[in-house]
Amino acid sequence: MANKLIVSLSPHVHSNDTVQKNMYGVCIALLPALVCSFVIFGVGAITVTAVSVASCVFFEWAINKYLMKNDKPTVTDGSAILTGLLLAFNVPSNLPLWIMIVGALFAIGVVKMTFGGLGCNLFNPALAGRAFLLISFPVQMTTWPVPMQGFGTYLDAETAATPLSIMKAAVKAGDASILEQLPNAMDMLVGRTGGCLGEVSALAIIVGLIFMLAKKIITWHIPVSIIVTVLVFSGLMNLANPVYASPVAELLSGGLLLGAVFMATDYVTSPMSKKGQLIYGVAIGFLTVVIRTFGAYPEGMSFAILIMNAFTPLINNYCKPKRFGEVAK
């Protein structure tokens, strides 16, 4: 025999699933939302996204090569591209590009690589990056361009009211009539509202969700538990006092769907067992509504996810999957 036989323990076959396939799968699922944001916000959306992706990839590569001195750089696995996309989706489309780069450095450098790179980070890098930018540059991060001014133009920083700020104003004033300024559900579904780059079009995100579920990249547990919790909890609030927005408005506004579908489902920072994922999703939904209605910020999704990221190890420790034969007696 010419070749030496290879020996290893079983199994000898593999599903051919790879990290790359999963990461690029999520990236593909984000494309509809990117197209929508281009249509709504024009060239700015594309520029900001491109800068974010490029700087995330660059920082990942540079840190891997010069600081961590890894032989096997993880740049090609697509996780940095994904972080870049998600980070860009969480900022206004007219954000100054240097702020975008700072955000990317924080997301990749501080949140991801200091913990050891792919698979080791405690918090979702894109969300932590967004939270950092929101706290550091509150003015730029909350200056929304007016949507639908024709693409091709790079929209100037104009302050347009977002559904969330309208809701907040209604709660603060205690006046339910302010809520009438909310765009109708159809507009929110398509994305003809102000807001962050990637979050405005609920429809595009739902298309992405269906794609990821079909490709078995994620399971339904986290997104569905978040959405159901938000609907139920905000529905109860709305019934109790009409100052609080309707559940449909809560669901379609802000980053809720983007967070529920793409952020909370981040592999690294979400719990491992199905039971844990449900608890995680319910807690995120609950916290989001609480922060939106009672907190200082109009948007609560990112903070809710970050808080639950911190609880993930604890959930993993206490929520074990049901062992085979556990209830057999």
Binding site: D77, Y267, V268
Partner: peptide, 10 residues
């Protein structure tokens, strides 16, 4: 490659 904690094994 590093574990990405995707929970597919679980």
């Amino acid at each position: 490659q590093p574990c990405i904690r995707c929970a597919k094994c679980v």
